[in-house]
Amino acid sequence: MILLTDELREHLLANGRERNADHVPVVKFFNPLGSGVWLATELDADRDTMFGLADLGYPELGSFSLLEMTSVRLPFDMGIERDILFATDLPISVRAEAAQLAGSIRDAERILYNAAQSGRDGEWNLS
């Protein structure tokens, strides 16, 4: 699977030129066979270093390498994948806080989704 389309790459690069903004995640990557979720908001000019929320057992904001992600080889000749259905309007700060309180990006996604479905838009109190 192609991890970044040209359109996604350009969006991430544009966000990368606008540092210190609370960007909405552009793309979600995941390990289809285990733990590992990444929400990317920015791509540096080097076209490798991404910034966003990473969860490899504990969610944290930071940088990660696109090249490293594309080089991961999992069993059954699988690799890291892009969630082609991913869409959000929540900035990375909200997602990071939710993930840290919930303990993982995946648990936070379920909580945020359920909150939105029950009509509590804007109420993200997870404590």
Rank of each mutant, 00 (worst) to 15 (best):
R19E: 13
E18N: 10
H11M: 09
D83C: 04
E109P: 01
R110V: 05
L39Y: 10
D121M: 12
S71N: 08
E42V: 05
L90F: 04
L90W: 04
S63H: 14
N20M: 00
L53G: 10
D48V: 11
N114V: 12
L67A: 12
G34W: 11
F30V: 06
M78G: 05
R95P: 03
A21S: 09
Q117E: 14
Y113F: 13
R120M: 11
V94D: 10
V72M: 05
T49K: 01
R106H: 10
G52P: 12
A14P: 00
G16Q: 02
D77K: 15
E18I: 00
I105A: 02
A54W: 14
E18T: 04
Y58V: 11
Q117C: 12
A87K: 09
R47H: 09
A87E: 15
P59N: 03
G16P: 06
A115Q: 08
L90Q: 10
A116I: 07
V27C: 03
A102S: 15
K28R: 15
G16W: 02
V94A: 03
G62C: 04
W124L: 07
L3I: 01
L74F: 04
W124G: 13
S63C: 07
P32A: 03
D22N: 15
S127P: 13
P25Y: 00
L66G: 10
E123F: 14
T5Y: 06
R73E: 03
L90K: 07
R19F: 02
G79V: 03
L8N: 01
Q100N: 08
L126V: 05
G16N: 02
L53M: 03
A14W: 01
R47C: 09
K28I: 00
G103F: 05
F64M: 05
Y113L: 11
E123S: 09
A116Q: 13
G79L: 05
E7H: 07
G57E: 12
G52H: 08
S93R: 09
F29C: 01
L61F: 07
D6Y: 06
T70M: 10
L43M: 13
L67M: 04
M78S: 10
S71L: 08
L61R: 15
V37H: 14
M1D: 06
D121Y: 11
T5R: 03
G34C: 12
P25M: 05
D89L: 09
E10S: 13
D107E: 12
A45R: 15
D77N: 13
F29A: 02
L67S: 09
E42A: 15
L39D: 04
L56R: 14
V72D: 01
D44L: 00
R9L: 05
E97L: 05
V26Y: 00
E42H: 08
I2K: 15
E68C: 09
R106N: 06
S63K: 12
L13K: 08
S35K: 15
L53Q: 13
E18F: 01
R47S: 14
A45H: 11
G16D: 02
P75E: 13
S71H: 12
D107Y: 03
S118F: 10
A116K: 06
